[in-house]
Design a protein around this nucleic acid. Structure first.
Lengths: 220, 220
DNA sequence: TCAGTCGGTGCACACATGTTCACAGGGTAC
DNA sequence: GTACCCTGTGAACATGTGTGCACCGACTGA
């Protein structure tokens, strides 16, 4: 009955299981760089993971369950990113420049995760689509509460902040997707994307001071 | 040798072929409402189209070729939309309201096409991805030349216009995707999306007058 | 009218897939 | 130390898949 209080060797069984579970996730992610989830077969995954097909069921009931686990894993890294952004003291100086830089860096570092999310955001599996949608909404909400702390957004309603955050998240998503789809090892193309992202964010923020003039209700 | 000058019955052969070709395209589009292209099988398509599997090769060499044909078909309707927008005289009065209305109407009318494009824009088949990317770029360019005719954008550089058009297209794409993913038969949810789209476009346009202050080169 | 072209059929094959079942072998609990 | 639990194995199956091939019947062109 004593579950947690044990000698260090006690976790070996679970550790080994966790290990092959991670191997399955990694294998899937690797394969998903070049195909979409709906065309990903259980046998492909187990093949790359170096396990027999039937072993799959020891870890996931479904392929769908594995997909949801991948979404979870992917957004964990995203949350880590925004947490890092919050901790970074420089963000107050050149918000846009640093944000874009941070985003681009993370996209490169975790390109498989980002590519997976981008691909399945409107992919063929409904469960994955919805899960991703929920996570993105949560992400935008997080950003909105962050924005609320900025001086010149003090008096904004939460609705407007959500709107602004949504606009920014859209821009970020588009940027990430553009980077992933850009020809690799082509610095100029990527620099162009980065510059565009900066200008887009700049254009959005330039609209902010004008926004107060209109009420929260739908403008005529 | 006389190809075109013939009795009306002459085209019957080609007409019938074109008919089943269209049946294949329609069948694929129907199936693609609930799955992604990479998981779409040749036999599924022919099955729904009411043709034997091997008949497929009389019309397309590949499934990929069918996919490209679908992209072509989809963007034909999109081009029709922008042409209608140009022809509409009211667009000068309430640009944003009318644009959003037009977009939403078209998305509903051709939801299968839009859904297909949204799904395959970053889907698992590289050829489709690239074709869609090209078409979207063309679409943004078209919009940019349209924007160039507006009075208060007279002195903008083509680069900035492309940037602005890209921003707007992004917003439109996001809106279309949101509508497609919204729960059906839920007017309030859709009204919310429409309102958000309007405000997003409004926020973008509000940034326009401020833009002149920065040069076309990358801002520090 | 007659040979020919061509869209559609039916059969066949090799192969990949999901899932089942009994089984093994070693860490775990007592 | 022993019985048990649990992760991974191997064979087997029904089913779905792409594609080659010979064939047919009707429309076509002269």
């Amino acid at each position: 009955m004593n579950v947690n209080i044990r000698t260090p060797g006690s976790a070996t069984r679970q550790e080994r299981k966790q290990l092959t579970r991670q191997a399955l996730l990694d294998a899937a992610l690797e394969l998903l760089e070049e195909q979409s989830f709906s065309s990903l077969s259980l046998r492909q995954v187990t093949g790359v993971a170096g396990v027999v097909p039937t072993a799959f069921y020891r870890h996931f009931e479904d392929m769908e369950e594995l997909g949801l686990a991948l979404i979870d894993e992917s957004f964990r890294t995203l949350r880590a990113m925004i947490r890092a952004a919050r901790a970074d003291p420089r963000t107050n100086d050149h918000v846009i420049r640093n944000s874009v830089e941070l985003l681009v860096g993370y996209v490169h570092e975790h390109d498989t995760h980002f590519r997976f999310i981008a691909r399945e955001r409107f992919g063929g599996v409904a469960a994955l689509r919805h899960a991703i949608r929920v996570e993105i909404r949560l992400f935008a909400s997080d950003l909105a509460t962050d924005l609320a702390r900025l001086p010149y957004l003090e008096r904004w309603s939460t609705e407007d902040l959500q709107l602004l955050a949504g606009l920014m998240v859209n821009a970020m998503v588009s940027t990430a997707e553009a980077i992933l789809d850009a020809p690799p090892n082509n610095p100029t193309a990527e620099a162009e994307i980065i510059a565009t992202a900066r200008r887009q964010l700049r254009m959005i923020t330039l609209g902010i001071p004008q926004w107060r003039s209109s009420p929260t209700s739908k403008p005529r």
